[in-house]
Amino acid sequence: MRVAGKLHWVHCARTDKYTLIDCHPNRGRAGIDALGVLPGFGGVLVHDAWAPYDSYTSVTHPLCVAHVLRELQGVIDGVPAGQWSWAAQATDALVALHTLATQAVAVGAASLDPAELAAQTRLLRHAAHIGISQTAGRGTKLMAARHALACRLVDREDDYLRFTRNQRIPADNNGSERDIRMIKLRQKVSGCLRTLAGARQFCAIRSYLSTATKHHISLFEALVRLAEGNPWTPS
Rank of each mutant, 00 (worst) to 15 (best):
T164L: 00
P80G: 03
L124A: 07
S207Q: 04
R14Y: 01
A222C: 07
H67K: 03
N173F: 11
G42K: 09
A115W: 02
G175N: 00
V44Q: 04
E157S: 07
Q103C: 00
V3G: 10
I180M: 14
G108D: 05
R152A: 10
A87P: 10
L7M: 11
F163E: 06
A87W: 09
R14T: 12
R125K: 10
Q187R: 15
H24F: 03
L153S: 04
A104I: 02
R125E: 11
H215M: 03
N230H: 13
V105H: 05
L123F: 07
R27V: 07
L38S: 11
K141E: 14
Y18A: 09
I21V: 14
A66D: 06
A144I: 03
V75Y: 08
R200T: 03
H98G: 15
P114D: 01
A171F: 11
L38A: 05
P52I: 06
I180G: 05
L69Y: 06
L97R: 02
T15C: 07
P39D: 08
D113L: 02
V95P: 02
L153Y: 01
R162G: 00
G137Y: 02
L97W: 00
L161V: 07
W232Y: 05
A110F: 02
P25T: 02
A115V: 15
D54R: 15
T91M: 08
W232D: 09
P62D: 01
S55W: 00
R152E: 10
L45K: 11
D92E: 15
H47P: 01
A34D: 15
C203R: 01
A101C: 06
P170K: 06
A101Y: 00
H24Y: 01
V37Y: 08
L185T: 15
T135E: 13
A197P: 09
A144M: 05
S55T: 15
C64N: 04
A115C: 11
V224G: 00
T233V: 13
R125M: 10
W50F: 14
L38N: 06
P80Y: 13
H126P: 00
I132M: 14
T99W: 10
G5S: 06
T233Y: 06
Q103A: 13
S218W: 03
V44Y: 11
D92N: 12
L196W: 03
V10R: 03
R165K: 14
W84P: 00
V95H: 09
L7I: 09
Q83E: 15
V46H: 04
V10S: 12
G131V: 03
I130G: 00
L63V: 01
L209V: 13
A128F: 01
L72I: 04
A115R: 12
V224P: 03
A148T: 02
G74I: 07
